[in-house]
């Protein structure tokens, strides 16, 4: 009875309808409930939030890409079996247990989506951006990837084949963007600054030096 009275606009068959409808209050109610029962530790929550805010993000992936550009042996090992190679750099864990690196070339451009939810290589790129989780990206990336790229201001050269990786299993994909011209002799750290998050998802290109 309480369900129907309190939250008429929600689905009554689901337990969540018993919580306050406002999402911020809903989170707080559940957090309070779980911590009063000793099931979650607020200090652990702060630690998780801080991890993805400050420690795990696209800078990790950019280091991998920059090394692949600079070191042919590293690149070959990465393309052959990326999981142990990135784990050696300390990038392993939740939502990145099985990594495959796919390289953009003159002939092929790669782009990653998860049409069923929001699978994303967390240890390399952190938490996915809002657009990656949006209905529009999930719906359109497989059917009209070139129109999607246009929304990002990217046009592929004529003759380039587009491969969209719909990451429907536990394998996570890292796009190795093309190395920009005029970057010969640059250090790995300087190269890494050219590697944008979107270029590692395939909705962007690496920055030109000086741009």
């Amino acid at each position: 009875m309480l369900r129907g009275m309190a939250h008429d606009h929600h689905d009554h068959d689901h337990a969540h309808a018993l919580l306050p409808p406002d999402p911020a209050l809903r989170v707080r109610a559940l957090e309070t409930l779980l911590s009063r029962k000793g099931l979650i530790d607020p200090a652990a929550l702060d630690e998780i939030i801080d991890t993805y805010q400050n420690r795990i993000g696209p800078k990790n992936g950019a280091q991998v890409v920059a090394r692949a550009w600079a070191d042919p042996e590293f690149r070959a090992a990465l393309l052959a079996d990326a999981t142990p190679v990135v784990a050696d750099l300390g990038f392993f864990g939740r939502q990145g247990e099985h990594i495959v690196a796919v390289e953009n070339t003159e002939e092929v451009h790669n782009m990653v989506v998860c049409t069923l939810c929001s699978c994303y290589p967390w240890p390399l790129l952190g938490i996915p951006p809002a657009w990656y989780k949006s209905d529009a990206y999930r719906a359109r990336a497989v059917r009209e990837p070139r129109a999607v790229l246009a929304d990002f201001g990217v046009t592929l050269p004529e003759g380039v084949k587009l491969r969209v990786w719909d990451s429907t299993a536990e394998v996570r994909y890292l796009v190795i963007p093309r190395r920009p011209a005029g970057t010969e002799g640059m250090s790995v750290d300087d190269l890494a600054r050219l590697v944008t998050r979107d270029s590692m998802i395939g909705t962007g290109l690496a920055r030109e030096p000086g741009a």
Binding site: D135, A136, D151
Partner: peptide
């Protein structure tokens, strides 16, 4: 299961 669905409109790429 929305892959291929029509009608979702433009994607907002946000800002880095």
């Amino acid at each position: 299961d929305m892959g291929g669905r029509f009608g979702d409109g433009r994607i907002d790429p946000g800002h880095p």
